[in-house]
Design a protein around this nucleic acid. Structure first.
Length: 287
DNA sequence: CTTATTCCCTGATTGC
DNA sequence: TGCAATCAGGGAATAA
């Protein structure tokens, strides 16, 4: 599942390869009716033809390919999307959903087993990105900002951290990892957390993302880079998909539960379920 | 505004 | 062993 580190790895690899290249022609599979957002596929293809890549950027899990007319080609890989730079002669398997032939003889190919992936061509990228929250590897991701966001939500902290309107780029893997580093229980109501805990979550998230980035991402089943290679971060994960295995900090067995509708892994030794804040009724303050 | 639920999609996993 | 039911999961849409 591509999250921020996987998308950023892809961006860094792709940038020097595609900047300066022109899209000669494109193709969208008939079998991918939801892939192109906001316009019919043929209009999308016509508007991208003969455009040249001028740069790349990333916002949360969105990859932004900047074009020479000031527009942006934006992609979201969702669950199983892959963006590959290939030889056009290479076998086109049934999961190829889009193909873009470049002027250096190579092809940018979008593969996606589950068809959740989406792409846009927009003049104003904010049309796609404007609702996203804090960018976790930027200066805006401060303890104060995170604490303020957590303080107004009653939902489990895990659910809030997964909400892209709060923080953009964390997914199921790295939220579990960040909470373990921060020693915060995933089901703790977000608004019950202290400023100190918010700070620990911020630090945990940054550390986990930077480590994943240095290992070129976590590959379970589908994630591969633009050359089809998996990342190596799985072997560095502390809790995610380690149910029943010993915690690397305290030795207790990692537990799996459900939070925010997602499978959630944590260490019951390191991440204590918060005692419900003593809801003491102040004498005489009857409601 | 918030929160919970449903949906999209298909290979892998689980259950009988 | 075989087949059907369930699961996984990002995020949008919908309901309350």
């Amino acid at each position: 599942m591509p999250e921020l580190p996987e998308v950023e790895t892809l961006r860094r690899d792709l940038d020097p390869e595609i900047v300066g290249r022109e899209i000669l022609k494109g193709w969208i599979s008939e079998n991918a009716p939801r892939l192109v957002q906001g316009m019919p596929p043929q209009v999308f293809l016509d508007s991208l033809a003969r455009r040249r890549f001028t740069g790349t950027s990333r916002r949360g899990k969105y990859l932004v390919l900047e074009l020479d007319d000031g527009t942006a080609f934006i992609l979201h890989l969702r669950m199983t999307g892959q963006l590959l730079l290939v030889d056009p002669q290479s076998v086109v398997d049934p999961y190829a959903r889009a193909r873009f032939w470049l002027d250096d003889g190579r092809e940018l190919r979008f593969r996606d087993v589950r068809k959740f992936g989406t792409m846009w061509h927009v003049a104003d990228r904010e049309l796609v990105l404007h609702r996203l929250g804090l960018e976790p590897l930027s200066d805006e991701f401060t303890t104060a900002a995170l604490y303020a966001a957590l303080a107004r939500r009653a939902a489990p902290v895990k659910a809030v951290l997964l909400d892209q309107h709060v923080i953009a780029g964390l997914g199921n893997i790295y939220v579990d990892e960040a909470l373990h580093l921060a020693r915060v229980h995933p089901l703790a109501p977000a608004r019950d957390l202290s400023r100190r805990q918010a700070g620990a979550i911020r630090e945990g998230a940054v550390r986990v993302l930077e480590q994943a980035l240095s290992n070129r991402g976590s590959s379970f089943r589908d994630y591969v880079d633009s050359r089809g290679r998996p990342g190596s971060n799985v072997q560095h994960l502390r809790v995610y998909k380690r149910t029943g295995e010993p915690c690397l900090s305290c030795g207790r067995e990692i537990v799996r539960t459900l939070a925010g509708g997602r499978s959630t892994h944590y260490c019951p030794g390191c991440q204590r379920r918060p005692r419900r804040r003593a809801t003491r009724r102040v004498a005489g303050a009857g409601v």
